[in-house]
Amino acid sequence: MKIKLDLLKWYSLIRFVVTLLPLIIIFLSAFSEASFLSFPPKGFSLKWFVVALTDKSILRSIQTSLLLAAVASMLSLLIGTLASYALVRYRFPGRNIIDSFITAPLTLPMVGLGLGLLFFFSSFLGGLSFINLVFGHVIITLPYVVRNISISLAAVDKSLEQSAMILGAGPITTFYKVTLPLIKPGLISGTLMAFIASFNNTTISLFVASPENLTFPVKIFYFIEFFPDPRMFAISSFVIIASLAIMLALDRIFGLYKIALR
């Protein structure tokens, strides 16, 4: 009986190592001396870090991705907070349809959505502008925000808002003084998840990012297509460490386990 649990434990440990294996490879290969990717890495050097960090086009793509993720997640925060409030606090015809529409972009194939957006922008809304790229991303970041805020909002009992009102607070004061402080965890986790989703999104950007707005994942995509060398692992190491830091922060603040299940 003991043996079975031990077997389970060892299997799970191996499974965890396998999960982390690509990350280990990325970190180690980044220090390779060779100009092609192989594992175990040949030699040891920091030259690919130097190449990556001095490549202006890479840095520019990271800059674009950060700006894009920031704008998309802020817009999602604004739009999502308003929408969540309506969806959680009111019952009205069409509510279920809107509710399922909001999460739909996450379940549908991103290539389909990307092709549709590209096709649509080539006929309407003035082509592949940065603002169109932003809204292409809002479509896939909004679901995270709405889901997180809706859960937080549903946990705020209506009686708290009613108490504030009957004590003399108007609707806006009530929202600002009572509702907002209580849904803050949902706001933060939703926005952070939206930020990560936008930053990591490759497919939508691949379709609708114009050459001036090349994002970091798209840049990586072209590296893989045309010159797969350790520089992309070098730069990815930084990005992965940054994402892990955000994940750790999320876990510290809210318990990642709960967030992951949303």
């Binding site: 982390l20 294996l21 490879i25 990717l37 995509f221 692992f233 990815s236 990005v239 994940m247 990642l256």
Partner: peptide, 24 residues
């Protein structure tokens, strides 16, 4: 919490890069 974090890594990292790492 720790194992959940490990399990989630493929979701939080660029799948392009991890896939390429597997390729090597």
């Amino acid at each position: 919490a720790i194992t959940t974090m490990i399990i989630l890594t493929p979701m939080m990292t660029l799948s392009l890069v991890t896939s390429y790492a597997w390729l090597t």
